[in-house]
């Protein structure tokens, strides 16, 4: 089932001088099993938007549909826990939410809250920590004794152990070194291949181009564009209007095209594909 937003508006602190309308009538369908990127300027409503999916926020007007759940202004959602299990949310800098004595307990916290115990719980935790690229020797350590990058992995493992069908990521690679960020993105791509829906807020357009199959651009609380990444990134005019810097690789390919190298920009999404395009064009000239 897709995730549907119908005319969703959200205002923070209504009726006070701090009032701020973050969403102004969002209409959006996020396809099932897609890897959707949400991009946009600071303050465009990205985080507010995704927090509606697991009902951390409720719309002031309009409604959000996630599987059988309908989230609107009035409804008190029955079984909110199972919605939160269905749509796992990884916040920005999730390492700050660690609190248990051992990494095992911290990863087990989520699934335990959703009623898992015993052998099954242990297996889940083990699976999750391996998935994020750490091994079981970490399980008995304190989450406060490991490096920042490892903390991030443990925090993400804590959400993965809940085995959500929809994984929501709020800038998951912010502050990671390039190597770590790349590994993290490969992990999400792997989870996506297992048939899960992934929704990722990101400012890293290179990753959006390389990994995502859909982009939603937000501007001032409205959907400004929704399309395949390459369709959005290849339109220089559109990008300018939305204040988005295109991915470096697209920029590079565009300059090649400007210098009369007739490569097909729609086939470029990472270094390898760019090279094979150049080879195709150059090879044909020989």
């Amino acid at each position: 089932m897709p995730i549907e937003f119908k005319n969703v508006s959200h205002t923070y602190y209504p009726g006070t001088p701090f009032e701020y309308q973050a969403l102004r009538g969002i209409d959006l369908v996020i396809k099932d099993q897609s890897f959707t990127a949400i991009v946009g300027h600071t303050g465009s409503g990205k985080s507010t938007l995704v927090q509606h999916i697991n009902a951390l926020l409720k719309p002031d007007s309009g409604e959000v549909r996630v599987n059988d759940y309908v989230i609107n202004h009035k409804s008190k959602i029955k079984n909110i826990k199972s919605l939160r299990k269905l749509a796992g949310m990884v916040f920005q800098f999730p390492e700050y939410q660690l609190f248990e004595e051992t990494i095992f307990k911290d990863i087990a916290f989520g699934p335990k809250n959703f009623g898992l115990e015993g052998k099954e719980l242990e297996e889940r935790v083990l699976k999750a920590i391996k998935l994020v690229g750490l091994d079981e020797t970490y399980l008995e350590k304190s989450p406060f004794d490991i490096s920042g990058g490892q903390k991030r992995r443990v925090a993400i493992a804590g959400i993965l152990a809940m085995e959500p069908e929809i994984l929501i990521l709020d800038e998951p690679t912010a502050g990671l070194d390039p190597q770590g960020a790349k590994e993290m993105m490969n992990l999400f791509a792997e989870i996506h291949r297992q048939g899960k829906t992934i929704i990722m807020i990101s400012h890293e357009m290179d990753y959006v181009l390389e990994y995502c199959d859909e982009v939603v651009v937000l501007k001032k609380g409205l959907v400004a564009a929704q399309d395949k990444p390459i369709n959005i990134f290849s339109k220089a005019e559109l990008l300018k209007g939305l204040h988005i810097t295109p991915p470096a690789i697209i920029d590079f390919a565009n300059r090649l095209i400007a210098n009369k190298l007739p490569i097909d920009i729609k086939k470029v999404f990472d270094i390898e594909s760019l090279i094979s395009e150049i080879v195709r064009v150059k090879g044909g000239n020989k």
Partner: peptide, 10 residues
């Protein structure tokens, strides 16, 4: 923020 993060973990 923490309330929301931990609410997401059940």
């Amino acid at each position: 923020k923490l309330i929301k993060a931990q609410a997401s973990r059940g």
